[in-house]
Structure formats: C-alpha cells, structure tokens
C-alpha cells in the first residue's frame, strides 16, 4: 500500500500553494470532484486555458458575475468541451506562430463530467483525440448526471440506483457495467492515458504533471466521489475514493505509449467489494447474491487490466 505518512509535513513542499480554483464556489459538502479539480489545477499551474463542459463543476463555479476560476476559462455547452478546446489550441498555435500573442507555451485543458465524456461528449472527445490536439482531457467521473438530479449515465456502475435506474422490484438499478472510456482512449493511440483519484492526491498530481509535459493529446479519468448522488456521508468521500481503489473497483493505472502500469499496487487479496458498496445508499438494495455478482464483475475487469499490465509493451 502506498499510503503516505506524515502527509502534512510533505504537503507544502509537494503541492502548489496558490489556488487556481478558489474557495467560495457552490459545490456540495464533501464533493470530491471539486477537490480533484483543485488539485489538478495546482498541478497544472497558471499557464493553462480551461474549456469546461456544462455540468456540476461549471454550475458551481461560474454563476455570473462570479467565478471560481483564477485561470482563463471558457464554457460553451455540454457535449463540446473537447471541440472548444480543439479550437482554443488551434487558435493559440496560429496566433503564437504569427507573433500575435506572447511566444510562450500554454497548455489547453478540457474538463467534463462522465456524461460530457462517456455519453453526449464522446464524439467530440474522440474527434479531438484522433486529430491529435495538444490538450489534456479530464473526465471528472461521479458516475451519473448529478447536476440534473442523479440520472444514470454509461459510467454508472452495475446495479447502482439512480433516478433513471431505480432499485425497482423487477429491475434492481443500473443494468449495465461501467463504460471504460480510458480503454477507448488507449484505442485512439494517444501517448498518455491514466486513471486517478483525489483520494490519492500525489498520484493524481504526478499524472497531471506527466500529461502536461506531453506535446499531444492525453486523457485522465478521475473517479470523483459524489456523496449527494451516491447517498453517502459527506465526510467519507475521501475514504470512499480509497476503497474504490483498494477493492479493485477503480484501479489507478497509467498507459504510456501503450504500456500499462499500476501506479498504486494492490495486494493479491484485494478488499471485498462489499466494503465499498455498504457505505453507499445507491447500493442499499443489494442482497448478498447481488454483491457476489458485483464482485465477479470487478474481478473480471481487474483480471483484464492486470493482463494488460503484465503483457503490454510500449509502442515505441
């Protein structure tokens, strides 16, 4: 386990002190997505431009005339963060080449939720990655349409209850497993793909810095615990993020030029998924047999990942 001891001693040396996502925004208590964003921006520094999709992070941060963003920020619509970022990147490139803006490298960053990434934003994301724009796309995945009232997305996990995948008498919550967008991004052949969690802040920030240094497209999928939507205690958001990793439900890994690597190693005997599920009201309706089904799915996905970790080789 890569648990960091004495974090409070190291933190000031490791973490940027300045805030680029300032306090006073309107996120729910215990929102791990806002925490993730804050850490991401600390790791990115000031020479960035953010294109944000409509969603929780946009709504909590940008009620005119207020803004929580200390870096240049643009929001256009829900499904097009990657397309807007493509335009920003192209504009910067052309203007810099022509000497109309300062000759300095500025990183373009797109930020979207799981809906704006895995569902309605998937086409724009695929296009931007395929075209090879120099940008980092962050999916801040809270596993449902939280901003509109906890409706399921394709990133909602198996059997989770949402308002459009309710725990009914005939159908017990979400019928499908989580769409693996990170894997879809690997299939685009982009140089860097990673999963991350604000419960592992140094791991998250290290990945952000790595992606920032790449000239080209990269993708970071951040599991962002949503106490409101997951029906969990707000003080347990960080703990839930750790349990997601420790149970193997959301392993932390990176894929550099096709080579998979776990960045947080897990013991051979992982914690049972029940430890993770039982803290969340969205899984309250699961009986022991259901938990077994979820466990089997987690095991299968984990095996698939480990196979890649063990066998993949870098493309170049």
């Amino acid at each position: 386990m890569n648990t960091i001891t004495n974090f409070e001693i190291y933190a000031p040396k490791l973490v940027e002190k300045r805030e680029f996502f300032s306090a006073g925004h309107r996120a729910c208590q215990g929102c791990a997505e806002a925490l993730a964003l804050r850490l991401i921006l600390k790791a990115l520094g000031e020479d960035i431009i953010v294109a944000n999709a409509t969603g929780c992070m946009e709504i909590i941060s940008s009620a005119y005339p207020h803004t929580a963003w200390e870096v240049p920020y643009i929001h256009v619509a829900f499904e097009n963060a990657a397309a807007v970022a493509s335009g920003v990147e192209a504009g910067l490139k052309a203007l810099r080449r022509k000497g109309r803006i300062p000759d300095r490298y500025v990183k373009v960053v797109a930020v979207a939720g799981d809906g704006g990434t895995a569902d309605i934003g998937l086409q724009a994301l695929s296009g931007a990655m395929e075209r090879g724009h120099d940008m980092i796309f962050f999916c801040l995945d809270n596993e449902a349409y939280m901003n509109t009232g906890i409706q399921r997305s394709s990133a909602t996990p198996f059997m989770a209850a949402t308002t459009t995948s309710p725990a009914g008498k005939a159908i017990k919550g979400q019928r499908t497993g989580k769409k693996n967008v990170a894997e879809i991004m690997v299939a685009h052949g982009i140089p860097y793909v990673a999963t991350a969690s604000p419960s592992y802040p140094l791991d998250l920030m290290q990945k952000v810095k790595k992606a920032r240094a790449i000239q080209g497209p990269s993708y970071i999928h951040v599991l962002s615990v949503c106490p409101t939507g997951w029906r969990a205690a707000s003080h347990e958001a960080v703990k839930l993020g750790r349990l997601a990793v420790e149970t193997g439900f959301f392993p932390l890994y990176e894929v550099e030029n096709g080579k998979y690597r776990l960045t947080v190693e897990l013991p051979a005997k992982r914690r049972p998924i029940g430890d993770y599920l039982k803290l969340q009201g969205r899984f309250r309706h699961l009986d022991p047999a259901d938990v077994e089904k979820v466990q089997a799915l987690v095991d299968k996905e984990f095996r698939k990942l480990m196979h890649k970790v063990e066998t993949s080789v870098p493309w170049s």
């Binding site: 643009i74 499904e79 097009n80 807007v84 335009g87 504009g91 086409q123 296009g127």
Partner: peptide
C-alpha cells in the same frame, strides 16, 4: 481543423475566436 461534425466545427470556431483568432 478537420472536425468530426458540424457541432464540433462551430464549437471549435467559438474556442478559436475566444483566443483572438
């Protein structure tokens, strides 16, 4: 920018115009 749809072409135009292009 050889966008993958018109939705993205106008979105990319918005982003590019916002940089001053």
């Amino acid at each position: 920018i050889t966008v993958e749809s018109e939705h993205s072409s106008i979105s990319a135009c918005a982003g590019a115009s916002a940089t001053g292009a």
